[in-house]
Design a protein around this nucleic acid. Structure first.
Length: 893
RNA sequence: GGGCGUUUAGCUCAGUUGGUUAGAGCGCGUGCCUCACAUGCACGAGGUCACUGGUUCAAGUCCAGUAACGCCCACCA
């Protein structure tokens, strides 16, 4: 047992313990050891990611759950890893290339991929290292990457199974296209944002019509008119009845296009006439199909106008828009411009405005997969916390659309589909491993699909691919399904929902039993933390300036279940100060036991030596253990943190340690030993309760105070078991001790106030033994703060009624009574009579109010018995108080 | 256009299945460098629980409506 230094040096201690934990394999998991499984997979951060507050919150919560289960003796596994993050990572490396003046095309596919892997080798471990400074207890031996061999095997397996079941198909549809990343996106990857745009009203002349005869259409994207192949109106729209079957002339282009009728058109919006551009709008595409319209794509991959745009070819889409509007204006086609607020999709990776575009892509048919996933949420096999997310999940599931899974990038799992190049064969097939020949014609001339899969196509397998699927094994059968998933709600569709579908489809069971969705970390103004806003707080800065424990404690304590949390740097003082407090409490204990061994593993208390204060702290400890268990079970982590905080600080340090100073400095060796026993028992269990939130500090104190007799590391120390009142009574802990101490506290407060306010000497108030006051002082008290008298009476009543000493105790009642009487002897009889009368009136009114409730048959019949009992007790207390007041009043001459 | 969340002390927020006198941290005021801790100790001030109506013996809590702020979803050009 080394002496603890005066200050806690987190910067040295935290890395020390983390290395020690890893060296001792304390986070290692082994399915073959059996027991009750508790398993969690981390939401894999992007391999390009750097640690931010969201990660810190997310991972701290998981660590709390995992560490507690480990202490409870579960066979615990927590799988860490990273996601290859297709587009994001490719973007990073492309930016790097750009600095060298090159593009990925200059390198070619193979060379480029080598560069990405090299990048990943060099920087890909960054976030994992950063995560370790938080102290999280993942089993690092299991670290996975979504492009590891095994996980890639899982991806190919899943693709082929779905392909064979015809749940994967290829087709030409309008998809969300990011012109900057040059790839298709899924619907979820296109983020809608309201923008202040315009609605341009454009005149489309009627062919061979009367002079000036035209149909006016309204559009938000005038540049797409170059690809128009029709104008549509609602068949019931009388305004356009006379144009039925006519042909219109496309402005600026001169192309002849038909006027068609389609129910899609809403006569109340705009002019009721819609320009139809099948290659650039999903609705227009559908209309084009219904009416067999030609499809004209007018844009290139990077959203410039192509040859089909004629004179506008080569222009950027927005430049083109400006030009088109100007030309329409000068040529008299522009009728008017309205401002118009509408939602525009943006790429979730680079925020470029998405261009709806006709393109051949791969899709997963989702409805068949969704069915089981809907059931699983409805029948509770998967539970969401907070529960409201169930509805959000179901809403999405029930309206699910097919998932566009192909991406026109290079970094990712390449689509395992092959095309035979033999012109006579042209066979297409999916294969788990690279084929040697075409299975149809046995030719060796074939090529693989150039696209890669959406990065989420590997993430949705994470809960079982990380345990070795598709291969069978002890890990998979023992740890799957995982127990809890902890994540933020923004990936509920991207990831959570899809994992549930994949788990049910490929494993036949849900991937996790419970999903806890925590809030978003925001800055003090409620804005999302982001680099561009410059408002982000780097968790590593907090670790440096405070400590990882302080970071963790503050985050957990400030985050109410599922609510967003607003953070500023000062808020981490909460955790730091708490850590300091505990550190000092430990130092105090160490100073007082002088290296003596204290039995903390299984102490036996002597009921004859336990004072009410000892009993009180023991009772409160067990109350706290119970509260912690309950709060963690219900994902109320802030309540859990506050329960430990409140107990350790205000009950243990402020009350018990202060109380203990007397016996510790006293001559009674037996008492002293007993107090140390109580203290160490309480403190060691408190450290256990706190360990899931503050792992480093608790480990340091565990060793510093010699608690290694319980367990070599607090990581494996047994989680405390709460004792109920009967069990505590067997130890000599009376439940009435709690009432006694709260009354004593009230009495002490009064005594201190009197001392402070009226200059009473310590001798007069020490141990509550008050000498009779001299008349002058008593008069001053009376004149200044007469209300003390009534407070004193209330306190003395409380003491008298709330505690029956189990054995002789330093009396609280008698000294208070002495104090009371000493003041009583020097009061103005008339004023006191008036005061007492007022008090009596108040008490009577209170009794009346309480009685009214008790006289109410409905209340007695319908309120819970415990509540009625409470009210009865209150009435009785009030009546006793009234009686005492009456006695006092009568005593005044 | 749908759905959800929030509104409680000067600030940031807790408040569980309705139940005795609505809590915490920070800040503020007063007194303390008391031999674990000034990153501290003790005491204290501060609240018509957004508004309106309803249900109930009882409402911060449940219901309906209103307002403000925020978030998510959505193929009205």
């Amino acid at each position: 047992m080394n002496e603890l230094p005066k200050t806690y040096d987190a910067k040295a201690i935290e890395p020390k313990w983390y290395a020690w934990w890893k060296d001792h394999g304390l986070f290692h998991s082994d399915a073959t050891r059996g027991g009750k499984p508790y398993s969690v997979v981390i939401p894999p951060p992007n391999v390009t990611g750097i640690l931010h507050m969201g990660h810190a919150l997310n991972e701290t919560i998981q660590d709390v759950l995992v560490r507690r289960r480990r202490m409870q003796g579960y066979n615990t596994v927590w799988v860490p890893g990273t996601d290859h993050a297709g587009i994001a990572t490719q973007n990073v490396v492309e930016r790097q290339l750009k600095k060298e003046g090159k593009s990925r095309w200059d390198l070619g596919r193979d060379e480029f991929l080598k560069r990405v892997w090299a990048w990943r080798e060099q920087y890909g471990g960054t976030i994992l290292r950063q995560m370790q400074t938080l102290g999280i207890s993942c089993d690092w031996d299991r670290t996975r990457f979504t492009m590891d061999e095994g996980l890639s095997e899982a991806v190919a397996e899943v693709f082929c199974r779905l392909y064979d079941k015809k749940l994967i198909y290829r087709g030409e549809y309008i998809i969300n296209w990011c012109p900057r990343c040059c790839t298709a996106l899924s619907d979820e990857e296109s983020e809608h944002e309201d923008e202040e745009g315009h609605l341009w009203h454009i005149r489309y002349p009627v062919k061979d019509g009367r002079a000036g005869e035209c149909v006016i259409v309204a559009t938000t994207r005038p540049e797409t008119l170059l690809g128009d192949t029709a104008v549509a109106v609602n068949p019931r729209d009388e305004r356009y009845a006379r144009f039925r079957g006519k042909t219109l002339i496309l402005p600026l282009v001169g192309r002849e296009i038909p006027l068609i009728e389609d129910d899609y058109c809403d006569p109340t919006f705009g002019t009721g006439a819609v320009k139809v551009t099948p290659a650039h709008d999903p609705n227009d595409f559908e209309m084009g199909r219904r009416h067999d319209l030609p499809v004209i794509n007018v844009m290139t991959d990077d959203a410039h106008m192509n040859e089909a745009a004629g004179a506008y070819a080569g222009l950027d889409r927005f430049e083109c828009r400006t030009r088109i509007v100007a030309d329409l204006q000068t040529q008299g086609f522009l009728v008017k411009v309205e401002s118009h607020r509408h939602a525009v999709g943006h790429c979730y990776r680079c925020h470029t405005a998405v261009e709806p575009r006709l393109s051949p892509q791969w899709f997963v048919r989702m409805k068949p997969l969704a069915r089981a996933a809907i059931e699983a949420a409805k029948d509770g096999r998967v539970r969401f916390v907070p529960e409201r997310w169930t509805k959000v999940y179901l809403e999405w599931m029930e309206n699910i659309r097919d998932w566009c899974i192909s991406r026109q990038i290079w970094w990712g799992h390449r689509i395992p589909v092959y095309y035979c190049d033999n012109p006579a064969c042209r066979h297409e097939w999916a294969a788990r491993t690279a084929p040697a020949e075409c299975p149809e014609c046995h030719g060796t001339a074939f090529h693989q699909d150039p696209d890669v899969l959406d990065t989420w196509f590997s993430s949705w397998l994470w809960p079982f691919s990380t345990f070795g699927w598709p291969r069978e094994g002890a890990d998979l059968s023992f740890y799957y399904p995982t127990t809890d998933l902890v994540t933020a709600p923004d990936i509920i569709f991207f990831w959570v929902a899809r994992m549930i579908m994949a788990g049910l489809e490929f494993m036949g069971d849900v991937p996790f039993r419970r999903v806890y969705l925590h809030g978003t970390v925001r800055d003090n103004q409620g804005r999302k933390m982001s680099k561009s806003l410059g408002n982000s707080i780097d968790p590593l800065d907090i670790v440096r300036d405070f400590s990882a424990d302080a970071l963790r404690f503050s985050l957990v304590a400030l985050t109410a279940t599922g609510q967003d949390v607003y953070i500023s740097k000062e808020k981490f003082e909460l955790g730091r100060n708490f850590g300091t407090k505990l550190w000092n409490a430990a130092r105090f204990m160490q100073m007082n036991q002088h290296g003596a061994a204290v039995d903390v593993a299984s102490p036996v208390f002597d009921p004859a030596l336990l004072t009410p204060d000892d009993q009180y702290i023991l009772a409160q400890l067990h109350r706290t253990i119970r509260a912690c268990d309950e709060h963690i079970e219900r994902c109320r982590f802030n309540d859990y943190a506050k329960a430990v905080y409140e107990f350790c600080w205000h009950e243990f340090c402020d009350w018990y340690v202060e109380y203990a100073k007397q016996p510790l400095n006293g001559a009674d060796a037996a008492r002293k030993a007993e107090v140390l026993k109580v203290m160490n028992y309480v403190f060691s269990r408190s450290l256990c309760l706190l360990h899931p939130i503050m792992p480093f500090l608790t480990e340091e104190l565990w060793h510093g105070l010699g608690y290694t007799t319980i367990a070599e590391s607090i990581v494996n120390a047994p989680w405390p078991t709460p004792l109920d009142d009967d069990e505590l009574a067997a130890w000599g802990v009376q439940s009435a001790a709690v009432a006694y101490v709260s009354a004593k506290h009230a009495a002490m407060t009064l005594a201190r106030n009197l001392r402070a306010d009226y200059g009473l000497s310590p001798a007069q108030t020490a141990d509550f033994v008050l000498r009779p006051l001299d008349p002058d002082t008593a008069a001053r008290v009376q004149a200044d703060r007469a209300d003390y008298l009534s407070v004193l009476r209330a306190a003395s009543l409380q003491v008298e009624t709330s505690y029956t000493p189990p054995h002789p105790l330093p009396s609280v009642i008698t000294p208070l009574g002495t104090l009371f009487m000493s003041l009583e002897g020097h009061i103005d009889a008339e004023a006191e009579k008036k005061r007492l009368s007022e008090q009596i009136a108040k008490a009577q009114a209170d009794i009346l109010g309480v009685s009214r409730r008790l006289d109410n048959a409905d209340f007695v019949a319908r309120a819970p018995a415990a509540v009625v009992q409470q009210v009865r007790e209150r009435r009785q207390a009030l009546e006793e108080k009234l009686q005492k007041l009456q006695t006092l009043l009568d005593a005044i001459p």
